[in-house]
Amino acid sequence: MGHGLLVDVSETTGVRLRAPRHRISRKAVPYWTVRALPGWIVLLVGEVLLKVLPDDPPGTWLTVVIVVTAVLALIHLAVMPSWRYRVHRWEVTPTAVYTQSGWIDQEWRVAPLSRIQTVDTERGPWEQLFGLAKVTVTTASAAGPLHIHGLDLDVARGLVDELTAATEASKGDAT
């Protein structure tokens, strides 16, 4: 009883995942920018206070840290929201839900309609400000929920109705 021989495979058949059909709302770009802002501000203010308040402030290295933080913040705020917007997409077919998300790290998730257990919408304070909603589709797996961020509220409502109807039509306990 061995541990299994390793068989080499050559990559001849070339397939890849195509992008899901629908983009999310354009408003997701300002939404992500605004949402990322507070974290950077808190960090920068903290660093500046550390520089200004004490009688004996730390040396030049703190200045370097502040400058680096500011540069990183600017790059993050300039690049992340539009990069994310380009990546985030979703699609519902007669048999499955398909999402693409991420920016530096990207992830694609597929769930068959017959295995869907719940469909939720969620609107945090920032999302309400921009008229957006997040749709979460769960299956019986702890590892498998699909999140669709930054949908227009109307689109989200329509999607939930569509998925709920499709889920009710399928039978079984979806495990």
């Binding site: 530096i104 790290d105 990207q106 998730r109 769930a111 797996s141 702890a142 590892a143 498998g144 495990t175």
Partner: peptide, 27 residues
């Protein structure tokens, strides 16, 4: 009961992905 395909920046550069089979069991 579903799939996840994950690719970090470095994985995409090397043409690799991590495939996750989701299930209601175990992990």
């Amino acid at each position: 009961i579903g799939w996840r395909v994950h690719a970090s920046y470095w994985q995409r550069r090397s043409g690799l992905v991590t495939l996750v089979a989701t299930t209601a069991a175990g992990r």
